[in-house]
Design a binder for these strands. Structure first.
Lengths: 202, 202, 202, 202
DNA sequence: AATGAATGAGGATTCATTCAT
DNA sequence: AATGAATGAATCCTCATTCAT
């Protein structure tokens, strides 16, 4: 039990740094958050941060990886095997909703990443991740066209891109919505209706 | 004559600073471009920059305003009075194409703006501009539904948003496309086809 | 039994720190070796080092004293009572050869000491040791002049200094000779020949 | 005239930094002198130093080059063409005396260089300089043996090394002699006498 | 005997900005 | 209209050292 406590305490500081950094980065971007600022927000000295993270860059990259990893894990929960294409699209939107609710800090952080002006060294480490979602969306549409009743004369690639950009835009809006006025769930419902109308031919 | 020369020279330096700053900001973001870097790229001393621009912030804001203003002027050229809704949508895409071709630096800069992590002070000055385009798009769709043959049971607001985010996303991709491999014109053609198919009911 | 083991283990760690510190200091100088570096090279935590040594300074000074003390012990082996002055000179060179072979780390360390830029506090503790060798050399030459057949009109003090600086220079060269290309023994033989030629008048 | 003043003022600060840095480095070694310390000793802010010198390393390397270059220039003055080997040796010693008198700061700095523990990057830039003097000394002895009446059965290489190390040792002593108690000139006179006695066979 | 976690002080360097000229 | 020189404040990061366990 003592061991657990110990290990818990250990992770506590590290986690505090982690979460505060995520929040600050998502609020102000990489360059405008200083190590000092992070440390002050946590209430530790600078060397403590450097005890847990090699440097600012590493901290940031680990943050990205963590956000991705949590996202992927959550995504799995929503991606059952035997779903119809429409259900899959629905679940993708539900997944983002859930992500937003469960990790509000990370979604802001995550939705900002692609938009931040980052040091080149970081971009290189992050870029490989980019837009697996686009592939997923395309495949769903393809599947839908093949045996899901989706309209055949629809530009598959382009429509997937449209869906992707819209989702991202909504997440972007939500992440900037400090007063919780933006009803993401409602917007996603309407979005799904729109997609259905477009995709399903009569 | 001397005066003119003088004044021309004056504008020349100012303009050099302006354009180099635009290029650098669009390439690397606000925070990662230093005054020194801008001055070196122009070949003048730092006080020269401060002679023309109050400070870094002012330089940036003026840049935004200039890009907006040029954009608006160009937009007028494409927005004739007696156009059908579809033609209007087509022209909006043509306008962006033209903007990209005519002001390649500014489009990159402009497309970065919303994405940059900016000091709060700047954010406040810029935000009022945001997304007049969304209104325009909504009105076109509305007009189309009223007397343009557009599908009536389409979520107007949402579809406009979809269009907006897709355009932005394409401009974003184009602005990051260093090797000129991204065929914006072709994509816009396909996009217009897609929109037509969706909007025009049979 | 357990106690002995215990105590042995204790000395082992202490000794590991000691030797690694000696090596690192001799390779890079006092300031450029960090406590972290020493600890990492040994594979212990920093507090362990501080358990055995009060601080960096103390560690260094103890290192100097140890090197000196080992040197002195070895020196005694080479300084028999009934040696002729020439034999004494020869044995001094042999002593340094032996020191180099037996304590390669310490000789590097030792030869660096006088050259390192050290904190004042350390300098004060070390300086008293300086150059007992010079006195020894002078006395040998004096003895040789008095009843060893050494040339009488030789500047005793100065020649001793010449001998000292040459020995030191050779040790310095040897200590920097990573590839083991420098033949110290051979050089010392030649050096002894030279000295004989100079000291012994025909 | 104004221009000269201007340029003088300009060089004044730079030179102040230069000389203070030389003094501090020679007193305490590279690592233990901080940029802050140099700036405080001159009375300027840190950015001023960085205005004149790229970084600490560059400052140091330029210092070395300057000391070397001044040394070489002075050396030329002492190395006439038609000198006898003995006169050449004498002049080498006189040259060092002159150097010490004319550039007391630099001699300390210069004599310390080889002894300092420097960052590897600096050592690489400096090492090419090493010990042209040894070659010079060897050639003089060779010349003396061939037609200067120097003893033929003297180990040429070794004796040159002996001379070199002794000179260096004296300069080292002088550079550490804060109270000006060490009579370098007198020592050099005695040294020359010793060398003559050894080199010139009867 | 040894450790994980934390610290305060200080390191070199760069920033946007301004002065006198 | 333009410059060389200077600055205060901030940047990221590392140091030797220590506390509680």
């Amino acid at each position: 039990m003592e061991d657990k406590n110990h290990s818990h305490q250990q992770n506590q500081t590290r986690n505090d740094i982690f979460m505060n950094a995520a929040r600050l980065f998502s609020e102000k971007g990489y360059n405008r958050v200083s190590i000092r600022e992070i440390c002050e927000s946590v209430g530790v000295g600078k060397p403590t941060l450097y005890y847990y993270f090699k440097d600012k860059e590493t901290l940031f990259v680990q943050l990205v990886q963590e956000a991705k990893s949590l996202g992927r894990a959550l995504f799995e929960e929503f991606m059952g095997k035997d779903l119809s294409p429409i259900e899959k699209l629905e679940n993708i939107l539900r997944f983002f909703q859930a992500y937003v609710e469960r990790y509000p800090v990370f979604i802001r952080f995550f939705s900002q990443i692609s938009l931040m002006s980052l040091p080149e060294s970081i971009e290189l480490q992050i870029s490989p991740f980019k837009d697996e979602l686009l592939d997923t969306l395309q495949e769903i549409v393809k599947e839908g066209q093949e045996h899901g009743g989706f309209s055949h004369d629809l530009d598959r690639e382009l429509f997937a891109l449209t869906m992707l950009s819209t989702i991202k835009y909504f997440l972007h809006l939500k992440s900037r919505d400090s007063g919780n006025e933006f009803d993401l769930a409602g917007m996603f419902d309407r979005l799904l209706d729109l997609w259905k109308k477009i995709l399903l031919e009569t």
